[in-house]
Nucleic acid binder design. Structure first.
Length: 113
DNA sequence: ATCATGACTCGTA
DNA sequence: CTACGAGCCATGA
């Protein structure tokens, strides 16, 4: 892949690799890509992925397990609703058992990179 | 080429 | 404990 910006494309792919019922953080994806400090870029990449159905951006939250980007999902509880439908309990934009549903690409896909 | 912005993260007060 | 500021890289104008 690397036909497009590259960075975005990689972020999309990692998002697609997120198993249903699990979530990850921007920093985790950024770290997997080799740019732990560029978590902003990951979030921004999601902004572009917002138009792609293949990218479950609702499974990506901040390091605190808070749905920071829910505002971009329609302004309502769309993101929370999607997570709850997959089995992820969310309370006040905060994921419950975040530690249990957290999915680390670096830990799960470490041997690939 | 530079300036400004962004769905984040970390360190210090 | 909470709050604020600075750092970071990529994109768009």
């Amino acid at each position: 892949m690397k036909d497009n910006s590259g960075f975005f494309q990689r972020v999309y792919e990692v998002c697609r690799l997120i198993p249903r019922g699990r979530v990850t953080s921007y920093g985790a994806i950024a770290k997997y890509l080799g740019a732990a400090r560029s978590a902003r870029m990951v979030g921004w990449a999601m902004n572009s992925s917002h138009s792609l159905e293949d990218v479950p951006a609702h499974r990506v939250v901040n390091r605190n397990g808070v749905l920071t980007g829910k505002h971009h999902f329609g302004g309502t509880n769309a993101m929370q609703q999607l997570l709850e439908e997959e089995g992820v309990k969310v309370k006040d934009l905060q994921i419950i058992n975040f530690d249990a549903v957290f999915w680390d690409p670096m830990k799960e896909l470490s041997r690939e990179i």
